[in-house]
């Protein structure tokens, strides 16, 4: 057994191929933040309660703090950095700004990732479905309403832009 536990992480992150030799035995969250310096994915609790570390693994939302890093080998990972840029915001991001759904910002990346997962499955959610969709994400500032309205607004915009209801994420 290699005491250094060096492993080869080969995967796709935000649409780009990644191949690097790093220490194994850690969480996907540590790989993203410490090795790739993708620090948009946050650690709020480290125990799967707060949802701040939500990323998409092969198109499904998962918690990076409970995922062994090696699980992601050969997979496609989408983080907040792959969703939109300051000059080219995803409609969910733009709507959260518009509705005032961003305060301290620590929960925001996870909220966006959960919202994307929800809208991918359900392009026209009711308020109750939005609440359920982000129920794995805690926010301490906003009281949630502005986040919920933001997601609702984004859903309407995405629906208008793609009447067939086939909403695709900006990456993948």
């Amino acid at each position: 057994m290699d005491e250094n536990n060096l492993i080869k992480m080969e995967l796709t992150v935000n649409g780009e191929a990644v191949s690097m030799i790093v220490k194994g035995g850690r969480r996907l969250l540590d790989f993203l933040r410490d090795d790739l310096h993708l620090t948009g994915t946050k650690e709020g609790c480290g125990e799967g309660e707060c949802g701040s570390c939500t990323v998409h693994l092969d198109g499904q939302s998962v918690l990076a703090c409970l995922t062994p890093m090696e699980r992601a080998i050969g997979c496609s990972v989408l983080t907040i950095e792959g969703v939109g840029s300051p000059t080219n915001l995803h409609p969910v991001q733009a709507a959260l700004l518009d509705e005032g759904g961003v305060q301290c910002g620590m929960c925001t990346p996870g909220m966006v990732m959960s919202a994307l997962d929800l809208l991918e499955r359900n392009p026209d959610p009711t308020i109750e479905e939005i609440i359920e969709g982000i129920s794995g994400n805690l926010c301490r500032c906003t009281g949630y309403k502005k986040i919920i309205y933001g997601i609702q607004q984004a859903a309407q915009e995405l629906q208008a832009a793609s009447p067939a209801g086939t909403v695709k994420e900006s990456v993948e």
Binding site: M1, D2, N5, I7, K23, G24, G25, R27, P68, E70
Partner: peptide
Amino acid sequence: MLYRKYEVA
């Protein structure tokens, strides 16, 4: 480290 080796079956 949380574990030393990860094997996929």
